[in-house]
Design a protein around this nucleic acid. Structure first.
Lengths: 225, 225
DNA sequence: GTCTATACTTCGATAGAC
DNA sequence: GTCTATCGAAGTATAGAC
């Protein structure tokens, strides 16, 4: 995937991704997108028709791409707990390639899908569906403890999305000496999240039929960092 | 300063919270806020001066309030693992009282704090700082496993924020038959998250039973309120 | 403090030549 | 396909009477 697309529509989409991520749908300016893509504004309308159509085209593309990569993991041959580890890593990799993704995703969640049509919503839904499939499989075959797929989805993905989307504001806070929130680099964050999720979803090793069942994590072999 | 408004700026703030949560800073309309608050637009400017000043006043208030409640838990007398359980419950309760909070928080993270001044950023930073303090305490006294405070913050809070902010879009997906994402009610989600975090942050069980353990983690279910 | 009316600006979108 | 020029709507903000 070329960093600098030479075809106008692709270049427009690439620039629009940055603009919509930085400013949101309402805050994005068609003029600015056109200028940053080095095309005329009339050219942009020639290719996409409207600001809304451009937005939808962009989100369909990015959500389909993300969902596709997660779906590939979901349908692969591996134990569910391994798939979960890989899904978190894959998501981090996807965001490393598409730095604008977290902000757009967060904004669209807050927006309630207001600017999206059915096709785009369907593409968006592909992400949680892929994760849900993995979890359901693991729960069914008892390689994961009984977690609700929706709860699992948010437990795995919300942290990495918000952590990466929040990089600018953490920098801002650090620059203004309002607390050091920048000391944890992304790759270490991903490792910590993978371990937390592993522990959170693991099948309890021993069952203690006490009044209040307390589930202890097992897998002590994973403890060495 | 004494104020005896026939029309309260508080009503403007309450309505602004809904508008900014639904549409974001750029998408919010001063006209609409004024109309929904049943005040004249000139009245709004009389009290707050500008759209930006209104936004900042709102966010300072809401972030200070949230951070205050978490800070109270952080400085209370309880084992860290209990505080963590309580903090998650308290956050859920806070959002139940302020349904607009998750969307505003998500949008502001994506925005990178672009419209905020130093005071408002400081109020915002109070939330992760309160959580970080709890985790650091627990790690230091070895009642929590070694988790980075920032990683812990996002692991605990991002899921509940995104889950609750995402309620409208899940409804939209369900209404369009694009996957049933609405089957998990909020209180069950909170319980599942509390358990996941408990398991994720628990001190790994040693093979041999420890002889003198001071503080035993207790299973608690603090769905505050 | 509260209102009506309006000034000023910006933005999305289009017309029409080439 | 690409450009310049511009329109009309919508937005923030203010003036000034009461």
């Amino acid at each position: 995937m070329p960093r600098r697309p030479t075809v106008s529509p692709d270049r427009i989409l690439a620039v629009a991704a940055l603009e919509f991520a930085e400013r949101g749908y309402a805050g994005a300016r068609v003029d600015r997108i056109a200028r940053r893509a080095r095309v005329n504004k009339a050219m942009l309308y020639y290719h996409f028709g409207s600001k809304q159509a451009l937005y939808r085209a962009l989100l369909r593309q990015i959500f389909s791409s993300a969902a596709g990569r997660l779906h590939a993991i979901a349908t692969s041959e591996a134990p569910p707990d391994q798939k979960i580890d890989r899904v978190i890593g894959e998501m981090a990799a996807f965001i490393a390639e598409h730095a604008f993704f977290p902000a757009i995703m967060l904004r669209e969640v807050a927006e309630g899908g207001a600017h999206l049509d059915r096709d785009t919503l369907k593409a968006l839904a592909g992400v949680p569906l892929a994760i849900g499939a993995i979890v359901q499989q693991g729960v069914a075959q008892k390689t994961l403890r009984s977690v609700h797929p929706i709860a699992a989805y948010f437990t795995m993905f919300a942290p990495i999305l918000m952590y990466l989307a929040g990089t600018p504001i953490r920098k801002e806070l650090a620059a203004r000496h309002l607390g050091d929130m920048s000391s944890l680099p992304p790759d270490l964050f991903v490792q910590q999240l993978q371990r937390s999720v592993r522990l959170a979803f693991a099948v309890p090793r021993t069952r203690q039929p006490a009044r209040h069942t307390r589930h202890h994590p097992h897998r002590t072999s994973h403890l060495a960092r």
